[in-house]
Design a protein around this nucleic acid. Structure first.
Lengths: 149, 149
DNA sequence: ATACCAAGTGGGAAAAAGTGGGAAATAATA
DNA sequence: TATTATTTCCCACTTTTTCCCACTTGGTAT
């Protein structure tokens, strides 16, 4: 499972190290897409197949208008990139994806179960702060699930 | 059962000894997450499987389409860490987890039946004091709602 | 009282992960 | 085709993490 937070440098050649702990699970080839929220999504090729099938399925249960769905799919598919992890564990993030989330210098790389998210470090800090305000409420859910040991 | 209170040192390398009495029950690999209140939760991997399944909406492959669900998953998974207990019984607590509860120097490690909590020593002292003050009152309430208090 | 054992703590050395940059290969342009 | 720009590959450096050994402390048994 992909979990945890890592702060890595994005260098002048647009390279970022994939956290060592993510490499095995991600495999050699990954898909990077614009994310929802101020971030990028990284999927394994396998996960991407699932996700893209669902997204493009006209019969899915998403309450999208057809036109909305087309727009959304253009956004996701049109800017998705297949990227290889190099021999020492780095990936190259296309500039057109960096621009959208103002990625530079430091990136926060976050494991969120089945996907990885890439954030501008500062934006990630703000996101955490935002959610921290409702954290107690969220944590209540966690606390209640742990009762069934 | 995980019970008792231990005060252990957290050293410059972010290491803490797991109380000897907890080691067998916890196993080799554990999951640490932000907890409820000013503390961290430690789960066995088995318990975490259960908890994480409940946290993410397992029936919805596209849970990332909903903003609330996204924030929630980021909070839970992004701030969780899988950690190994080393050959002499210590764990490494990631700095991003320490920050949230201001962990340094001394940690209070508390067994709470089927999970372990990690507190800043001082915060734990205050927590105990707070609860002690209202303990009689609590006991009174509990006693009046249940015959087996 | 003293010696012994077990749990916890501290620190140095080795290994691993992350970063930066140069050279070779490829592509782009004139 | 020559020249320049861009990308890829590889090597080397730095920092962090891990592993291992030894010390300390406190409890226990003789």
């Amino acid at each position: 499972m992909l979990i945890g937070e890592y702060i890595h440098t994005i260098d002048e050649k647009n390279r970022v190290s994939v956290p060592f702990k993510f490499r095995k699970e991600l495999g050699k080839k990954i898909i990077i897409t614009p994310g929802l929220g101020q971030c990028l999504f990284i999927f394994t090729t396998k996960e991407w197949e699932k996700v893209s099938k669902k997204l493009s399925d006209a019969d899915n249960d998403l309450s999208f208008l057809k036109a909305d769905q087309r727009d959304f799919n253009r956004y996701m598919f049109g800017r998705a990139a297949e990227v290889e992890i190099d021999s020492i564990g780095r990936i190259l993030i296309p500039e057109f994806l960096q621009e959208g989330i103002k990625l530079r210098d430091k990136a926060a790389i976050i494991g969120v179960k089945d996907r990885v998210e890439v954030w501008n470090e500062k934006a990630w800090g703000e996101q955490k702060e935002k959610v921290a305000r409702s954290a107690e409420e969220l944590a209540e859910k966690l606390g209640s699930t742990s009762k069934h040991a």
